[in-house]
Every structure is written in C-alpha cells, then in structure tokens.
C-alpha cells in the first residue's frame, strides 16, 4: 500500500477539489436566497445586487409568521411528514418485500400491475372523483392515502430487498417466525440505509404536499404549510384574466416583495432540510453488514 501513497494523495486531491467546486456552485444561490430574505424591500429595488444588506430586517419573517393559520399549517405538515412517512414505508416495504420473494405465486403479475401504473398516468379529474367518493375531501387522509406509495418506490425498494440473501430469511423461519415476523425482525433492520433513504423521499414528498391539498382541501385550517405560504405570496397585481387584466380590487393585501418570497422559501425548506444531517450517519459504509454481525 505504501508504494501507492503519492498516487493516493493525488487522487484525493483531485477528488476533494472537484467536490469543493460542486459544493461551491450551490452555495451562492442559497446564500443569496437567505440574504435577500433579511433585506428591506426598498433596498432590494434600489440596488441591483445585494451581497450584504445595509440594514437587516426581520419584517418578512414577521409578516409570514404572524398569519393566524401558521401554527395549524405547521401541524398538518408535520403530521403528514411523520404519520404519512411511516405508513408509506410500511405499505411500500410490505409490498416490495412480498414481490421480492421469488417463491411467491402471482409475483410477476403483481409486478406488472405495479409497472403499468408507472407508465399510465390518469388525469386529475378521475382521482378527484375517487377521493370525493371515499368521503376524504377536507380530510387529512386525502393528502396521505392517494400518495401512500408509487410504482417507482415499490420497484426500487424491491431492488434493495433483492440483494438480501434468502438464506437469512429461511434461518429465521426455522426459528418459528412467519413472513411478517421475518419482514419486521430481519429484513427491515437489514435494509436500514435504504429505509432511511426512502423515508427521506417520502417525508420530503409529504412536506411539499401542495397540489393535492389545493384540490382536496377547502378548509383553510387543514392547509399544509406550502399551500398557506403560496397563498400569502399570491400577487394581486398579476391576477385575473378577464377584462380588467391586472386587478387589485379593493383588496387590502400587500404585493409580495422578492424579499418576502425568499423568506417563504427559507421557512418552507429549513425544517425538512435539517432532518438530513441527522440521517446521514445511516449512510455510513457497511451499516448493513454490521447489523447482521451484531
């Protein structure tokens, strides 16, 4: 190994430098977004590019957080991101595990059934009718049940379960576990990195629930955060397609400034973004094998 030391060094140097460049490419826009959210709107209009605001202001945040629906919308979003994610993992994992077992009858039929839903996407109207007929309009379940899983997740998670040797499961069966027991006690712990990754996908998906909420939720108290923020950012000066073209009516509603929009982006993304660093350790190399041995 020693004779390769200098090669190793050069490899690391190049690799780390490239990564640094990629990282830097994302820094500026993010920095700019955050900085603008603390800038006074007047200053924003006066200066063409702001790298450091003259006066820091919290006005944008105060305005957004003062909305009476803020607390309820946060709770809806958190509920979706936790309960929804848990249910999604169970449903997706259960189905993916079942179809990953080669001995299962109708396995291929089930796979094709799933795949078809990936390729054929129905319109919004029939989905709306299903949700309405289930009596889910204005219920938080209308934001969870229709997005419990998808073909993409099932097929991909099956890919992960495929790589777990069947021998492990058979050993557990001899110990008297049934398939559900095996799934819960062996398979899930073994697939921790995958579960974390999928959990993150689901959680972000639920956190960003927007379009379904627009369609299925009429009651403002049931709005998730993204819908509330978007509604606060509606620009009354660019609304309306009729004869008026650019109405403001009598609406006592301020024009959303660029700084307000940026503050909304920060509020909407920070909570879910903070989840990631806590999950990172599960991506550490060898997590799976470690758990088998331990």
């Amino acid at each position: 190994m020693h004779e390769r030391g200098w090669k190793n060094g050069i490899f690391s140097l190049i690799n780390n430098t490239l990564l640094l460049l990629i990282g830097l490419a994302t820094v500026f826009p993010i920095y700019y977004t955050v900085i603008l959210s603390f800038t006074d709107p007047v200053e924003y209009y006066q200066r063409s590019l702001i790298l450091w605001p003259r006066d820091w202001t919290l006005d944008a945040y105060k305005h957004l957080l003062s909305n009476g629906l803020f607390v309820s919308s946060i709770s809806v979003s958190v509920f979706l991101a936790t309960v929804g994610t848990a249910l999604s993992l169970l449903v997706t994992g259960g189905m993916a595990y079942a179809v990953s077992r080669k001995r299962l009858r109708f396995r291929k039929a089930m796979m094709i059934m799933v795949l078809i839903t990936f390729l054929f996407t129905p319109g919004l109207v029939p989905l709306y009718l299903v949700v309405r007929n289930l009596g889910l309009i204005d219920s938080v379940w209308s934001l969870i049940l229709p997005s419990l899983t998808s073909a993409w997740y099932v097929l991909l998670m099956k890919g992960f379960f495929d790589s777990i040797p069947e021998s492990l499961e058979e050993a557990a069966m001899i110990d008297g576990c049934n398939d559900i027991g095996v799934f819960w006690r062996i398979i899930l712990p073994l697939s921790l990195p995958a579960l974390v990754a999928f959990g993150l996908f689901f959680a972000v998906g639920y956190w960003n629930t927007y379009f379904n909420a627009l369609m299925f939720i009429n009651d403002q108290k049931m709005w998730p955060l993204q819908v509330l923020l978007q509604n606060m950012l509606v620009d009354p000066t660019t609304m309306g397609s009729g004869s008026g073209g650019g109405f403001a009516f009598h609406v006592n509603r301020q024009v959303p400034t660029e700084t307000l929009k940026m503050a909304a982006v920060v509020i909407a993304t920070i909570p879910i973004m903070l989840v990631y660093p806590f999950l990172q350790k599960h991506f550490a190399k060898g997590a799976m094998v470690g758990s088998v041995k331990g």
């Binding site: 109207v125 709306y128 627009l214 369609m215 009429n218 509606v234």
Partner: peptide, 27 residues
C-alpha cells in the same frame, strides 16, 4: 372559498367532474 392561485384548475376539475355546488362561480 377558492384561493386565487388554485381557482382556475379547481373550477375546471369541478366542471369536468360534474361536481357542482348550488351556486358555482366560473371566472
């Protein structure tokens, strides 16, 4: 109530689904 950011789409879905309230607004 329909929020203006959603109104157009929602009204179209309502019309297309035949799911109409007793007083229906169309822009």
């Amino acid at each position: 109530w329909l929020s203006p950011s959603t109104a157009e789409e929602k009204i179209n879905v309502m019309l297309a689904s035949g799911d109409l309230p007793e007083v229906t607004f169309v822009e």
